[in-house]
Amino acid sequence: MNKQDLIDAVAASTGETKASTAAAIDAIFETVLRTVSHGDIVQLIGFGSFSTGARAERSGRNPSTGEAITILAAKTVKFTAGKAFKDAVNA
């Protein structure tokens, strides 16, 4: 399912127009993105939690030359599935 499929499904389920549904979904995505990028956690009970994590600097190898390189530290995005989500997937 892509974003347009999601918009179509939600619009059909709620009876709203596709334009208003798209605006609502865009607003939700933007709010989650903005909140998580500021270091806060977005927790949707039953669905899951979005948060950030930290990856430390580490050493690696260039696969084409075999040369040792340093991979810089970076922030990562984490999603932890909620119980209801896990149960729905495993049912």
Rank of each mutant, 00 (worst) to 15 (best):
M1H: 00
N2E: 12
N2A: 05
K3T: 04
K3L: 03
K3R: 09
K3M: 05
Q4S: 10
Q4D: 10
Q4L: 10
D5I: 08
D5R: 00
L6H: 05
L6T: 12
L6Y: 02
L6G: 07
L6V: 07
L6A: 10
I7V: 14
D8H: 05
D8R: 02
D8E: 14
A9I: 10
A9Y: 00
A12C: 11
A12Q: 14
A12H: 00
S13Y: 00
S13K: 15
T14E: 13
G15C: 06
G15W: 02
E16M: 15
E16W: 11
K18Y: 09
T21V: 15
T21I: 12
T21M: 12
A22F: 04
A22Q: 13
A22L: 08
A22G: 11
A23I: 13
A23P: 04
A23Q: 14
A23R: 11
A24W: 15
I25A: 10
I25E: 09
D26E: 13
D26M: 07
D26S: 10
A27S: 11
A27C: 09
I28G: 06
F29H: 06
F29L: 15
E30R: 05
E30D: 15
E30S: 14
L33S: 13
L33R: 11
L33W: 00
R34I: 13
T35E: 05
S37V: 13
S37Y: 03
S37N: 12
S37H: 08
G39V: 08
G39E: 06
I41M: 07
I41P: 00
V42P: 01
V42H: 04
V42S: 03
V42C: 02
Q43C: 08
Q43K: 14
Q43F: 08
L44C: 05
I45Y: 00
I45A: 12
G46Y: 03
G46M: 09
F47G: 02
F47L: 06
S49K: 08
S49W: 10
S49V: 09
S49Q: 07
F50W: 15
F50E: 02
F50Q: 01
S51H: 02
S51C: 02
T52Q: 13
T52F: 06
A54Q: 13
E57N: 04
R58N: 05
S59Y: 02
S59I: 10
R61L: 04
R61H: 01
N62I: 05
N62Q: 08
P63Q: 07
P63V: 08
P63T: 11
S64K: 12
E67F: 00
E67Q: 14
I69L: 04
I69G: 01
I69C: 02
T70N: 01
L72N: 09
L72Q: 11
A73L: 06
A74N: 09
A74Y: 00
T76R: 01
T76H: 01
V77M: 07
V77C: 07
K78N: 11
K78Y: 06
F79S: 02
A81P: 06
A81Y: 11
A81C: 08
A81W: 11
A84E: 15
A84I: 12
K86L: 07
K86C: 03
D87W: 04
D87H: 04
D87F: 02
V89Y: 00
V89G: 10
N90A: 12
N90P: 05
N90S: 13
N90Q: 09
N90H: 03
